[in-house]
Amino acid sequence: MAELSDIANEFARGEIDEFIENEDERKEIIDLYAAASPDMQDIAATVLEGDNDKSDELTKQALDNGVTALTVMDDGLIAGMAIVGIKFRENFIFVPEVLACARAMKAGMAHIEPILSASGVEPIGRVLMGTVKGDLHDIGKNLCIMMLRGAGFVVIDLGVDTSPDDFLEAVDKENANLIGMSALLTTTMPNMGKTIELFIDEDKRDDVKFMVGGAPVTPEFADDMGADAYGDSAVECVEVAKSLLKKNASA
């Protein structure tokens, strides 16, 4: 079992010590960081600090030094976002800080994605995300996207005001196995159900899992309209997506 002192990067060590309170989570994160090389810990720290210039620089440097894209992504960028997610869930940080961390992750991913894409590495899942028809609010959906990308998912952002037809059209085109729908208004959340109905009518319902969320959406409402899962936060969205994929794999 690794110890906090096994982590070379001082900033990452301090963050874990200060912010990860749950024992199991703390152990998991310490193991993750201790197993990563000091260079990868440094990359994770740039994400934690929200330093996009440094993330860009260190990611490029690591790739130039022959570290694989997958290692940089998993041990550096995703490891950084893992702590960001916990800090956000526990209200140690808020949306501006998460946006800055996600921007740093994105700066690193700009170097990683073309390599992974060219090498045909399969992501852990491909998710379509959209705010439903009639709804222009996207901050919740965008936070989910940041957290999903931070966990290694490929996310196709359909934006706001996404009609049931838009979801249907995109699912084939993007070869997605998950759909995430968001709504901030009680007036628009029924459009989640309409989207699911369209997939049933078009005989596509079994091809994809639906997860839903948004301020007025409740687990009961999600269930009533036939969604596969409900998430009440951007952090939970990642857990929900992982568990739906497990269900898919065991189906």
């Binding site: 222009l136 609010h137 934006g159 706001v160 208004l185 007036t187």
Partner: peptide
């Protein structure tokens, strides 16, 4: 502004 219809609120296109 997306003015919408009878059954939805108008919203600013913040994006």
């Amino acid at each position: 502004i997306q003015w919408e219809g009878k059954d939805n609120w108008p919203t600013v296109k913040m994006n």
